[in-house]
């Protein structure tokens, strides 16, 4: 087995696995980074989305040999203590239900907001329509991305959180 070296969430990582192993399974089974999810295995659902050198990628079809020397960011490395504006917006909009697809949704959205700082709702729809959520949270995801974009642009007043009855 070859040794493959790459960065995961800023940390240098060496794995010894067959080079055709999809990055997804190296993250989950070899490195125990289980925040990245298996949903379909054929790049159809987006649950496995990560960033490779800043680009949004489906890790279930991305052979680990191709990440040698590259920088992989997973949901675990998106921020310290859930402080990414998207994570804060996800909580304010009370987005997740079962939550299983949400790592991939957030990573897809994070990549999208890097390329489009002033998205319209239609832009968001276009960027997110290849991620599947069976709990039907799309409307809330859209609202959360627009909320996060506004926050990243320093817009004052993000509107009320969905849960106005109290804080956690």
């Amino acid at each position: 087995m070859p040794e493959i070296t790459f960065l995961v969430n800023g940390k240098s990582t060496v794995v010894e696995v067959s080079g055709d192993t999809p990055l997804l399974w190296v993250l989950r089974d070899t490195l125990n980074l289980t925040g990245t999810k298996y949903g379909c295995g054929i790049a159809q659902c987006g649950a496995c989305t990560v960033h490779i050198d800043g680009q949004v990628q489906r890790s279930c079809v991305y052979p680990v040999s191709a990440v040698a020397g590259k920088n992989v960011t997973t949901i675990e490395g998106l921020s310290e203590n859930r402080t990414h504006p998207l994570q804060e917006a996800w909580i304010a909009e009370q987005v997740p239900q079962c939550g299983y697809c949400q790592s991939g949704q957030i990573m897809t959205a994070a990549g999208f907001l890097k390329s489009n700082q002033h998205p319209t709702p239609d832009d968001v729809d276009k960027a997110m329509s290849n991620n599947i959520c069976r709990c039907g949270t799309a409307q809330r995801i859209r609202a959360a991305i627009l909320r996060a974009a506004a926050a990243m642009n320093g817009a004052p007043g993000q509107g009320q959180s969905k849960a106005t009855g109290g804080e956690l």
Binding site: L33, T34, G35, T36, K37, T74, I75, E76, L78, S79, R82, L86, Q87, W90, I91, Q94, V95, P96, G99, Y100, Q102, S103, I106, S161, K162, A163, T164, G165, G166, E167, L168
Partner: peptide, 19 residues
């Protein structure tokens, strides 16, 4: 009767919820 935040949601924004 008051809209309250769900306790499991923060764990579902950073990959830490264990399925």
């Amino acid at each position: 009767g008051k809209p309250m935040p769900r306790k499991d949601i923060p764990l579902k924004t950073d990959g830490s919820a264990q399925f």
